[in-house]
Design a protein around this nucleic acid. Sequence first.
DNA 1: TATTAATTGTTGCAAATGCAACAGAGGATA
DNA 2: TATCCTCTGTTGCATTTGCAACAATTAATA
Lengths: 222, 222
Amino acid sequence: MEQAETYIDTIMNCKLFKTIEKENIQKLLPCLKAKIIKYNKDQIIFHQGDLIEKVGIVLKGDLLIQGIDFWGNSSILKKLSEHEMFGEIYAFEKKPLEVSIVANTDSTVIFLSLDKILHPCQFSCTFHTSLIVNLLQIFAKKAITMNHKVEILSKRTTEDKLLTYLNSLALQKNSKSFDIPFNRQELADFLIVNRSALSKELMRLKKEGIIDYDKNSFKLLQ
Amino acid sequence: MEQAETYIDTIMNCKLFKTIEKENIQKLLPCLKAKIIKYNKDQIIFHQGDLIEKVGIVLKGDLLIQGIDFWGNSSILKKLSEHEMFGEIYAFEKKPLEVSIVANTDSTVIFLSLDKILHPCQFSCTFHTSLIVNLLQIFAKKAITMNHKVEILSKRTTEDKLLTYLNSLALQKNSKSFDIPFNRQELADFLIVNRSALSKELMRLKKEGIIDYDKNSFKLLQ
DNA sequence: TATTAATTGTTGCAAATGCAACAGAGGATA
DNA sequence: TATCCTCTGTTGCATTTGCAACAATTAATA
């Protein structure tokens, strides 16, 4: 794993290694059967349907998660950047991948075996416990994020989607006033609605005194 | 935990205890600080905003997961029946609950401390490893389910939602022909569309030779 | 079998949304 | 300042969806 040293700072930033010190991560890597592989732009890293045994972490470049449906239409579901992990759910569940992972630029990826995380090895249990807790947290955070998204998308109208989103932000920040991390187009994409339809709703809700906003600053009114 | 014995078969059926033998579960319960509590219909078990420290498993009756928004509107998000677990994500993440849990009938619930799962106790490590693996699997399955749902709800039209759903079933069953586990109304609710609009789309797609179906049996065509 | 209930299909119309195209505001840059 | 560019708001119209009401079909029960 000589190469791993080159990328150790990126690896450290992956949530899987949270609270584990740099030197201990280096000790862990061989134990997790780490392998580093380079890909050219447009090369396919995992194919839809693959049974994968290792998780990947992006060390350099960025990857795309692509969904391909029965009729052959593909869509980009997410972009993965440096120190982001992928495949962990499917590697763990040993279920065939439902998406493909493709290099969006020339990229470098490190692959780690998850199985080793669950079983004792030659190193102190502290590492293992940290890895397990981190993995649980990654899974839990993913579930919470998806939960929020489902709650929003389960609303039928743009108004309800928008208010559900704003409401969840207000709860999160524990205040009726808050900023949103999106511009209008991004917000529309996030809520899965048309941008101009979103603009209409925003104006209407402001007129009716239900919300107030200026640019990215929003406020929920009584 | 005398009472626990009464419910041991229900407890066994909870996914958290998969692959753990009955007698071992009984040994584990005190270690997980198990507490059994009875509730009357409409009693609130967890309030939105609570920081919870234990997960619950329904032993008798059923509970409702309710979401309450900024404007006070509440909606039923899910029904929990015997041997189903709840609160695990929030107990683990130590984040305030974003929903309320209410007894839908007179109910009995057992509460377990998750913290103990992660740290060694007096019992053999086999139990612990099983608990951890089970918890990871529960989280992973939840993430996969939510992923599917988001993928479907991210489609704008009823047609796309429907085809995405049918496609994911076809992939799952690895066949172009399969049965769906819903009737029309349930399918409409699942896809978050209107039932009659769904019927229209189904007919249209059949006419156009894109799908074929009879009752709950569906087939994807070229 | 007759009756009732539940499910699914069908229709027309109102409402919401998508879409395209353009206008205005504000920022960045030469 | 002039120009370009991005973001946001605005408009009209075509399309899609929701909704209500009813018809047809199937299942359930007496």
